[in-house]
């Protein structure tokens, strides 16, 4: 028995009402001692039936056992007790993914990301679900349902349509929703890597921060955020209340011209969004 488990077991024996059962059960789970972990967490749940963390942990143990149905129930209980419980959202998101219900999976992963925006595991899971959605031809990856299932190429066409005819439609223009999902456009890093989704995920946070700063400093609604970097200039605007538009150009393009480009792209984005409704 490892030292931490020994210490926690002793603590729990000395005080059976202690919440040490949570880290103890998790330590046992991580060491694949699932039956022992299950006993500990069930004993804890008998004392703390309303502790969302305990239901979440029991869900993970059940999931490790392969008992997905009961795991789903436990995570459901955790969410009823704490609707923002990121662990439970992640768990249910995973189960939906396994079951092929990609829309619901994405919904729960988004909820988890809203609580922990920097969680790389959630971001990776979301990217995987989106990838599966695109391959699946489902339209739920984009909040722009226009019809039946599409193939991947068609999905790409849609994202390019947003800025059709505009310079940088595939690299340098990015339309993002309030959850950090790319709605259209694309972005490559200076090294040529596709960074659109990564940047999109962060832009939602930037937008929220800009909104908060402007509100608390009594400056009214934010209109634009402009950034200069050695590798280029970035211009962020909000074409609609629920979207953010990023325009990226090389440093040689003056900021004033960037603003004009952004205005044109914002008009295109608004028209595209209106066409979907």
């Amino acid at each position: 028995m490892s030292e931490d488990i020994r210490v926690m077991t002793a603590q729990l024996a000395a005080d059976p009402t202690s919440l040490v059962f949570l880290p103890l059960a998790e330590a046992l789970r991580q060491r694949k001692r699932l039956d022992a972990a299950r006993k500990v967490v069930l004993a804890g749940l008998s004392r703390y039936p309303e502790l969302a963390d305990a239901h979440n942990l029991y869900g993970r143990i059940l999931g490790d056992h392969g008992d997905f149905e009961q795991a789903f129930d436990e995570w459901g209980i955790a969410l009823r007790l704490d609707p923002d419980h990121a662990g439970a959202h992640k768990g249910i998101g995973f189960l939906y993914f396994v079951a092929g219900k990609l829309d619901q999976a994405l919904e729960h992963l988004q909820a988890a990301q809203a609580t922990f925006p920097d969680d790389e595991g959630v971001a990776a899971a979301m990217a995987r679900v989106r990838e599966a959605l695109e391959l699946d031809g489902s339209d739920a990856a984009e909040p722009s349902p226009t019809g039946p299932a599409r193939v991947e190429e068609e999905a790409e066409d849609i994202t390019e349509q947003v800025f059709a005819g505009l310079e940088g439609a595939e690299n340098g223009l990015l339309l993002v929703d309030q959850h950090g999902q790319r709605l259209g456009g694309g972005l490559l890093s200076p090294a040529g890597q596709d960074v659109a989704d990564r940047v999109a995920a962060h832009l939602a946070g930037v937008s929220r921060e800009a909104t908060r700063a402007a509100r608390l400093l009594e400056m009214g609604d934010w209109e634009t955020v402009t950034v200069e970097s050695g590798d280029g200039n970035l211009h962020l605007a909000s074409p609609t209340a629920d979207t953010v538009l990023l325009v990226v150009r090389q440093s040689a393009i003056p900021l004033g011209r960037l603003a004009a480009l952004s205005e044109r792209a914002a008009n295109a984005a608004r028209a595209w969004l209106e066409s979907l409704t």
Binding site: P190, V195, G205, V206, W222, T224, E228, S229, L234
Partner: peptide, 24 residues
């Protein structure tokens, strides 16, 4: 936050940032 987004784009850190709002 903006620096994190800029870094995710593979760009060097920001050297200037301007937030324009309705009244400031």
């Amino acid at each position: 936050r903006m620096g994190t987004a800029v870094s995710a784009a593979g760009f060097t850190p920001p050297s200037f940032m301007h937030l324009q709002a309705a009244r400031g």
